[in-house]
Each structure stands twice: as structure tokens, then as C-alpha cells.
């Protein structure tokens, strides 16, 4: 069949190799995302921890232990809203994406998915979407808590900005989780996720302001996307912050690329042993 005959080929589509239309691909992607979010919400061990930790910490340090003090030009309760939103996004992705994918690899589930005609990106993007959805949910809960109990005054625009930043944070954090899933032994993934989640939050100043930490430690923060996302949060909330949007986005992009490269290394290694 010549190229000229191609416009007529639709009548003999049974002979042609079945290819998928864009709309069919998007439908698969949407279904995959929907089920992934539903699955994560139903998995209480995950959903309660992912939502519970930031809410609990914020309630404790942002609301209970603070007596109306200010920092960075805003109320502590408003300032910490930014930090704990980033903390929530990090946990949702490192545990939801990282540990989730590691378990799927270990159980052979990822292999079954790969053997199917599912577009591989649908699997990954559904996990990013799930992490993003949890990040947004956490920001909303923290904001409601802050406004109701912590005297936080927040404009609709500020709120929209911090929701957007948290959702955006799901991307670099998911890439971190993915690199972890492909590099560490699957059975130790949960432990290693904790070793990433907690020190990284601390070193990014999400719990204790960075100024209170030794100078050397402060330098590490610049390599962590959580630090840059937190600065973006402070800027959005009208609190004092360091750096510019451009430097933050550049650092986050560099981190994301590095994690994708690490993932590729891990994936190749697994493939050669498959």
C-alpha cells in the first residue's frame, strides 16, 4: 500500500497496526488517575499518615505552642502554614509515590502493567496526580485550621498561590520518590522514605527557621527543592523570604532532572537483571 492510499486506509483499519488515538490515551490516563486517587484515599495506612502528620505538627507547633508571635513579618501561624504545606506535599509524594512504586515493583505488579498495552506514562502520571491531590487536600485542611483557630488572615489570591505551589511541589517530590523506588531494595523503601522525609524537612527549615541552624547546614538547604518551595510559599504569604522565583524554579528543575537521571540509572539496572 502506497502512501497515496493512506487517506483511504481507514476503511481497512483491521489490517493496519492498531494505534491509539489521543483521546483514547487521555481516557486511559484519566481513568488511571481517578483509580489511583481513590485507591490512596481508601488505603488508610497511607491516607491517615500522609494527612495526619502535617495537620498534627501544624496544630501543635503552629497553633498550640504559639501565643500570637510574629516572624518574617507575619503571624507564626501563617508563616508555618507555608512550611507545613511543603512538608505535607513531601510526605504525600515520598510515601505515596516512592514507597507505592517500590511495593509495586516488589510484588511484580509493575511488570504486569508493563506487559499490558497501558501507556507507561499513565502509570507514572497517575501517581504524580495522586501526590498532587493529597498535597492540595493537605493545604486546604491546614488553611481551614489556621483561619479557624490560628487567627490567620489569608486572601483568596494568597490561598490560590499556596495551593498551586503545593501541587507543583508534587512534581520534584514525586521524582525523588521515583528515584528512591528504583534504586533502593523494595523491602527497605519505607524505612528509607523516613530517612529522606524527616531530615529533608528539618534541613529545609520547614520545622525550625533556617537562621537558627548552623551555617554549614544552611548551605545544604539550597540543594533541596523543599527549601525553595518553602521560600516560594513565604513569598506568596507575604512573609520575608530569600532568593527570587527564577532561582527557586531553576534549583527545583535541576533537582528534578537529577532525580530523573537517577531513576533512569536504577531502571536500566533493573532491566538488565530482568
Amino acid at each position: 500500500m502506497s502512501a497515496v492510499a493512506l487517506p483511504l486506509a481507514s476503511t481497512s483499519s483491521a489490517l493496519a497496526a492498531p494505534t491509539r488515538t489521543l483521546s483514547a490515551t487521555l481516557r486511559i490516563l484519566f481513568t488511571e488517575m481517578r483509580y489511583e486517587v481513590v485507591r490512596a484515599l481508601r488505603t488508610r495506612a497511607y491516607s491517615l499518615a500522609a494527612i495526619g502528620f502535617p495537620v498534627m505538627f501544624y496544630a501543635l507547633f503552629g497553633l498550640l505552642l504559639n501565643r500570637g508571635e510574629s516572624t518574617g513579618g507575619v503571624l507564626v501561624s501563617k508563616y508555618l502554614l507555608g512550611g507545613y504545606s511543603v512538608f505535607g506535599a513531601l510526605g504525600a509524594a515520598v510515601f505515596g509515590f516512592g514507597v507505592g512504586v517500590a511495593l509495586d515493583i516488589n510484588a511484580g505488579w509493575l511488570e504486569l502493567k508493563r506487559a499490558s498495552p497501558m501507556p507507561p506514562l499513565a502509570y507514572l502520571l497517575s501517581k504524580v496526580a495522586m501526590a498532587g491531590a493529597f498535597s492540595v487536600l493537605i493545604v486546604c485542611l491546614l488553611t481551614v485550621l489556621g483561619v479557624a483557630v490560628g487567627h490567620v488572615h489569608i486572601t483568596l489570591l494568597e490561598f490560590a498561590k499556596i495551593v498551586g505551589i503545593a501541587a507543583f511541589g508534587a512534581i520534584p517530590f514525586s521524582c525523588l520518590g521515583m528515584a528512591m523506588a528504583f534504586l533502593v531494595p523494595p523491602t527497605s523503601a519505607a524505612g528509607i522514605a523516613n530517612l529522606i522525609y524527616l531530615p529533608m524537612s528539618f534541613l529545609s527549615g520547614l520545622w525550625v527557621p533556617l537562621g537558627a541552624l548552623p551555617h554549614v547546614v544552611q548551605q545544604i538547604a539550597h540543594f533541596l527543592p523543599s527549601y525553595h518551595l518553602a521560600q516560594m510559599m513565604y513569598s506568596a504569604l507575604g512573609a520575608s523570604n530569600k532568593g527570587t522565583l527564577l532561582t527557586h524554579l531553576g534549583a527545583i528543575a535541576a533537582f528534578t532532572v537529577a532525580m530523573l537521571a537517577l531513576t533512569l540509572v536504577g531502571y536500566r539496572r533493573k532491566e538488565q537483571n530482568a
Binding site: P18, T19, R39, A107, G108, W109, E111, A115, P117
Partner: peptide, 18 residues
């Protein structure tokens, strides 16, 4: 090839599905 996979089904030994 996706075209080959669209005509193939597999049941593998899976420890845990979601």
C-alpha cells in the same frame, strides 16, 4: 510494540495487586 501488546494478555505471578 504497543500493537503487539494490544493483542496479548498476561497472567503473571503477582504477589500483590493494589
Amino acid at each position: 510494540d504497543t500493537a503487539a501488546r494490544m493483542r496479548t494478555g498476561a497472567m503473571l505471578q503477582v504477589g500483590r495487586a493494589p
